[in-house]
């Protein structure tokens, strides 16, 4: 049979679901390196979006379930998420391009890829408490994608008491595997914890609803800056 050059192999493999790709890492070292390559992974994601192949709906209701996007009438599959059997409660904090952000207990976050079943527990970010603060801060995490640096990032917002203090904001970069503190969100745009679990990543920014007049805080994943958007008119 004809010899297929590497560029075409990459094209052919980009049509495959994740599971056979993981098996085909055993074909040879060059195949393993190709499948692990970030450019290949990016082209695989783009191909999946374009062709609507390999897409799943992730559902969260006490447990986490997945459902193939192209056959929504199928039964859901219950997933085994990392730390499922931990004593700490797990929170589903959103997903982006198939990566799921989970909160484990109050302080820990995990980035989990249900397709590869791999996960990364993020290092714990320090909290700089305001002077004189005593109490339990409210912490929320959310995941998004920075298309400028091709990096997935997790934003951590720590609020020490409603309307008393500004909220501390830190950003975790998957590429750098580290946290960076960025500008605080002012106290008047406090993200209530109940709302905090409901975030939407769209147009390169994470969005949360904040309490006054249903306005929206948008956090730009590339610039690592927040801004306030007017809420929809009800």
């Amino acid at each position: 049979m004809a010899y297929i050059p590497t560029g075409l192999i990459s094209n052919i493999l980009s049509w495959l679901p994740v599971k056979p790709l993981l098996r085909f890492r055993c074909v040879s070292k060059p195949w393993r390196d190709l499948i692990d390559d970030r450019h290949f992974i990016r082209s695989h994601i783009n191909r999946s979006f374009e062709s609507k192949n390999n897409l799943s709906v992730i559902l969260w209701y006490d447990d986490i379930y997945s459902l193939p996007f192209d056959s929504l009438n199928d039964a859901v599959t219950e997933l085994d998420w990392p730390f499922k059997y931990s004593v700490d409660k797990t929170y589903f904090l959103g997903c982006c391009d198939g990566l799921v952000c989970l909160g484990i207990g109050d302080e820990n976050a995990v980035i989990w890829n249900p397709a590869t079943r791999k996960y990364r527990k993020l290092p714990v970010a320090p909290i700089e408490y305001p002077q004189g603060y005593v109490g339990e801060p409210e912490i929320l995490f959310a995941i998004g994608y920075d298309s400028v640096t091709d990096d997935y990032k997790v934003v951590k917002v720590t609020s020490c008491g409603f309307s008393k203090y500004d909220s501390e904001v830190r950003v975790y970069s998957m590429k750098l595997d580290s946290w960076r503190r960025v500008e605080d969100i002012p106290r008047q745009h406090y993200i209530r914890r109940g709302y905090g679990r409901l975030n939407v990543f769209v147009c390169g920014s994470l969005h949360w609803m904040v309490s006054p007049e249903h306005s929206i805080v948008a956090f730009d994943m590339a610039a690592e800056e927040h801004r306030l958007l007017p809420g929809p008119e009800c």
Partner: peptide, 8 residues
């Protein structure tokens, strides 16, 4: 199928 040499 792809005539790949197994270098493992």
């Amino acid at each position: 199928i792809f005539h790949v040499e197994n270098d493992y």
